[in-house]
Write a protein that binds this DNA or RNA. Structure first.
Lengths: 145, 145
DNA sequence: TATTGTTATACTCTATAACTATA
DNA sequence: TATAGTTATAGAGTATAACAATA
């Protein structure tokens, strides 16, 4: 692996460490998805869709950062599993609104519970570090706590 | 214990923020890979392979956290581009050692340069936060700096 | 017999372009 | 004409299982 140069800025070094952390999490996230017999993109979609807040296909594509045409397939598979539903848009009949079904809501909640568990590396931080980390990340993401 | 949506541990909250950050970076990383006409997994492989340190296929599979059989295809494509080379193992002739070619080394370096740039969210942190973030992450990853 | 890498197979994700049905 | 979603197509990643060469 490429080692972080000591010449990098602190932000760049932090970024390098974050990349390492995320690579390490890839297998875990995939394993959790597998527990539910879902592919990662399907998990992501189910997470983005909020129960009670129907969402247009194009909006989902935007959230998933992929092309509209991909969403067709991803939603096909979720719908085949009975986790989401396509409903005709009311004002504009070209649009299809996605609604999470009760079954989907249950899966979504159990999934969220598993994914919310921080990885070992973070769980092992002491309380003060964890709080500081959270606060800095909140600032970085513009989440004025 | 089903939902602790508002009152998670600091570590879990930090993890949630990190997940948001990484989702936001997906498009950027993919765009950088595209600049070099490489798929993300190819970039990842090229990053893992260190010039001058030949690496067995199975070792690469381990680093990429995927099956050996995938690596065959990924390396096929990198080799077709002249970026890496398969060489027979010396002690064990079942093993194939991967070596980064000079061309691969050049691409790898330019790529690393682009990927090392921290995302806006991190670059925007003040010096003190950035250093603290780096230090906490180093502790989390067991990198006793 | 066990292991390394390959091949065969099948599925998912991905983007582009052409198409449909609405607007 | 323009837009939302689909279909067609093609390429890449992924896992499993069967296989060859080697140990």
């Amino acid at each position: 692996m490429a080692q972080a140069t000591t010449r990098d800025t602190p932000a760049a070094e932090a970024w390098g460490l974050l990349q390492r952390l995320m690579v390490g999490q890839k297998a875990r996230v995939h394993a959790i998805a597998s527990e539910f017999d879902l592919a990662p993109a399907q998990v992501h979609a189910l997470h983005v869709l909020e129960p009670g807040c129907p969402c247009a296909m194009s909006k989902l594509a935007q959230a998933l950062r992929c092309d509209n045409s991909n969403v067709t397939g991803i939603v096909d598979r979720l719908e085949a599993r009975g986790l989401v539903e396509r409903r005709p848009g009311e004002r504009d009949r070209r649009v299809k609104m996605l609604a999470v079904t009760p079954a989907g809501e249950a899966v979504r909640e159990r999934l969220a519970e598993r994914l919310r568990e921080p990885p070992e590396a973070l769980a092992g931080l002491d309380e003060a570090d964890a709080r500081t980390l959270r606060d800095i990340l909140a600032r970085a993401l513009g989440d004025e706590v």
